[in-house]
């Protein structure tokens, strides 16, 4: 388990104990809020997770190797960014993958684009984002994030 996950669980337990000691009625109201939030999103998240599972079975992260091939840095950057956009894989899978791609000759710039879009731009989580914030918000945020990811990686290319 990640250290922040443990920290988060400890934080939740501490808050809950503190809250119940201070005001039982308020605490129950707070737990009701938590329950409703969970009920509101659980079905959507499980569905999206199932879609991600299917997607990763059809297109394993390693596929990016064959797609990248001998393309130029610019093309590789866009391909990596696009690949990062449509997938959602945890950082502890993405970084080892990116690192092995670099040893195999992939450019750092394209890997930066891959990692940034992977985490910040969510094609597959967009339906959940729309439920909470609406279509326009989701579109604006994701387009801006995609553009930023390209700029960040190009900027990194100038320095690294």
């Amino acid at each position: 388990m990640e250290i922040t996950a443990i920290g988060l669980i400890l934080l939740a337990i501490t808050l809950l104990i503190w809250s119940f000691l201070k005001d039982k009625k308020k605490s129950i109201k707070g737990l009701n809020v938590a329950k409703n939030m969970f009920k509101g999103i659980a079905v959507d998240i499980i569905s999206i997770l199932a879609l991600i599972g299917l997607f990763l079975t059809l297109v394993p992260p390693g596929t990016i190797k064959t797609v990248l091939g001998d393309t130029s840095v610019t093309a590789a950057t866009f391909i990596s960014a696009a690949f990062g956009t449509v997938t959602l894989i945890p950082a502890f899978v993405a970084f080892p993958l990116a690192s092995s791609l670099v040893t195999e000759g992939a450019h750092l710039v394209s890997m930066a684009a891959f990692i940034t879009t992977l985490t910040m731009v969510g094609f597959i989580t967009a339906p959940i984002e729309i439920e909470y914030f609406g279509k326009k918000f989701t579109l604006v945020r994701n387009v801006l994030s995609f553009a930023a990811a390209i700029l960040i990686s190009l900027g990194m290319g100038l320095i690294l």
């Binding site: 988060l8 605490s27 707070g30 737990l31 009701n32 809020v33 938590a34 329950k35 939030m37």
Partner: peptide
């Protein structure tokens, strides 16, 4: 592992 804790923290934020 994560969501229940996140929601409990947010529930507490909501009331406190």
């Amino acid at each position: 592992e994560i969501l229940p804790a996140v929601f409990i923290v947010m529930g507490m934020v909501e009331v406190w």
